[in-house]
């Protein structure tokens, strides 16, 4: 399974990167291909290409703020393949979040 994610929190210094870490760890543990873009205080890092988004089975948006280039996900949104949560939710219950992602694919 391929997952792409965007993390962005309000201040862009702590939650963004903590969410990135847990998502990457949990996906690697389960053997999924994962790429996480962060939109933190320093701007966009590890930016997702449209191609990567199109290929992904699920998109996870762990965001507390409006993100740049949200329209990249419009198609996935229409297909119902996008999960949007607060970054804090991802950090607290990463297993539950990835379980939900699995549920979308089945």
């Amino acid at each position: 399974m391929k997952i792409v994610a965007v993390c962005a929190c309000t201040a862009g210094i702590a939650h963004t990167y903590m969410a990135q870490e847990v998502i990457e760890q949990e996906c690697q543990r389960r053997g999924y291909v994962i790429k996480v873009e962060t939109q933190g205080g320093m701007g966009i890092d590890n930016e997702l290409e449209q191609e990567e988004i199109d290929e992904a089975d699920v998109v996870i948006l762990a965001i507390a703020v409006g993100i740049e280039m949200q329209e990249r996900f419009d198609e996935k949104m229409d297909q119902g393949k996008v999960i949007e949560v607060e970054p804090g939710v991802a950090i607290k219950d990463i297993e539950g979040l990835i379980d939900r992602a699995e549920g979308l694919v089945k």
């Binding site: 929190c9 309000t10 201040a11 862009g12 205080g41 965001i63 507390a64 703020v65 409006g66």
Partner: peptide, 14 residues
């Protein structure tokens, strides 16, 4: 709330 937070995130560095 998300919009408000977006505003705050740009406002904080200022």
């Amino acid at each position: 709330f998300k919009s408000f937070n977006t505003g705050i995130s740009y406002f904080l560095p200022v």
